[in-house]
Design a protein around this nucleic acid. Structure first.
Lengths: 239, 239
DNA sequence: TTACCCATATTGTAATATAATATTTTTTTA
DNA sequence: TAAAAAAATATTATATTACAATATGGGTAA
């Protein structure tokens, strides 16, 4: 979807409406204004409004029927694995509890992906993991940002799993990581520790040690989980 | 999306184009006819065509730009967790290899979901699992179809996990199960065996034994995996 | 009271026109 | 002749208007 400036009219409206829906501006059940009202509200033609409505419907956020209008679908029908929907969710409520659910998903997916990568990963795909890993090392030593290569490391493993459903979750995982970063401190010596832990995963994959790769990855994510659960406990105390 | 008869024009066109795209009718990179051509081809107005195009774009299948036309996005950008996209995939290529990828995903998700259900599942959610389980038992004893309650059993566990991202995968899991059913024989005595294995998972969840629930679920899916791998080996031999 | 029918509001579909955009061709100029 | 500029062209993007289909609610008649 590129940058916001590049979006056309209906895409911009899709964005605004999508955010509003997820933020709960329009009540569950039957909410949204009629197409005509949206036209005047945004000062655009019905064509653009309808295209936005169709896109949101395709993402499971709304449904529209003649005479009845446009209504918000119940949240369990929202397509959470759609990148836009995911982004809107975190713009509206970047809560620790959602982050915990993210980590539970990562804990399900990534260790398995690492195991598959160890078993069936092509040499090129594994080389790609190493590239990201070296960039992490480099960033840790030169005090640069470790975020980008970190995301690339995890994405490369998903690709190396050879399973398209795992790789499809790359945006999901990236979003989870980006949100996690907001809560981590990044003391300078800990950066190298993180890079070292990632290297262990890489080594296991490269050596074809599926179980070991799986366990290392689970350990890594579990650490993040423990940290977040601590934060949640803290915030509950202060509340 | 309900039944096909209930769909409106643009939704029907979305379906047809979606299927065609995934079946590979239009070459990768730049393929589709122009909007004008689609209008005459289907005998409909540009409005309907455009709405279909927007919906497919929202699902990541295509993108369109002025002067350049409509082009098929690379498959790794397709939103595979969209129910429609998933359905189209299996209509076009119900292969054993895709089914194996499905099972790899289930092996990642469902054991974790069962563990979470054991840890945090609400009594109502767990009761729902039992309802499905009893229906399975019933079907096994009266020689009925075990499919529907089987799907409900797995869905109920995803719900009981309390993680919206897991529950969101219910359609994905259902599809995987439905495809699996096409390859299984269902000897009458084996039905009761299957139901019993499911009961073990339920018992573990109900007793709060997270590790046990996880292992039981993993065992169940692993059995299916072994069966599919056998089938794959067979088909490779005959080829 | 019940059944039927009609008015009405809202989305669904169509047709047409103009704008924006990017490719290709042509023309101009050095 | 080659390169740059400009014009023609094809295609999607947006707007406008009109009518059709549909379901809701109210009113009318039996």
């Amino acid at each position: 979807m590129a940058r916001i400036e590049n979006l056309n009219l209906s895409q911009r409206v899709t964005n605004e409406l999508g955010k509003a829906i997820i933020a709960g501006v329009y009540g569950e059940g039957s909410g949204l204004p009629t197409e005509a009202q949206l036209c005047t509200e945004y000062g655009i033609s019905r064509t653009a409004v309808r295209e936005a409505v169709k896109m949101l419907a395709a993402k499971g956020l709304i449904s529209s029927r003649p005479r009845q209008g446009i209504r918000v679908e119940p949240p369990e029908n929202w397509n959470l694995y759609d990148t836009s929907v995911l982004g809107w969710m975190f713009e509206s409520s970047p809560s620790l509890l959602v982050l915990k659910e993210f980590l539970q998903m990562r804990l399900a997916i990534e260790p398995q992906a690492a195991a598959l990568a160890a078993k069936h990963g092509s040499p090129e795909a594994i080389a790609q993991i190493e590239v990201a890993l070296n960039a992490m090392d480099n960033a840790a030593q030169t005090d640069g940002s470790i975020h980008q290569p970190d995301v690339e490391f995890h994405t490369a493993i998903l690709l190396a799993s050879g399973n398209r459903f795992f790789y499809q979750l790359r945006d999901f995982i990236s979003t989870a990581l980006n949100v996690s970063f907001q809560y981590t401190t990044n003391a300078k010596d800990s950066l190298q520790t993180i890079a070292d832990e990632h290297r262990k995963i890489y080594q296991a994959i490269k050596n074809g040690e599926a179980e070991r790769a799986k366990n290392m990855m689970a350990y890594l994510i579990d650490e993040a989980m423990a940290y977040i659960e601590l934060k949640i406990a803290e915030s509950e105390l202060s509340a």
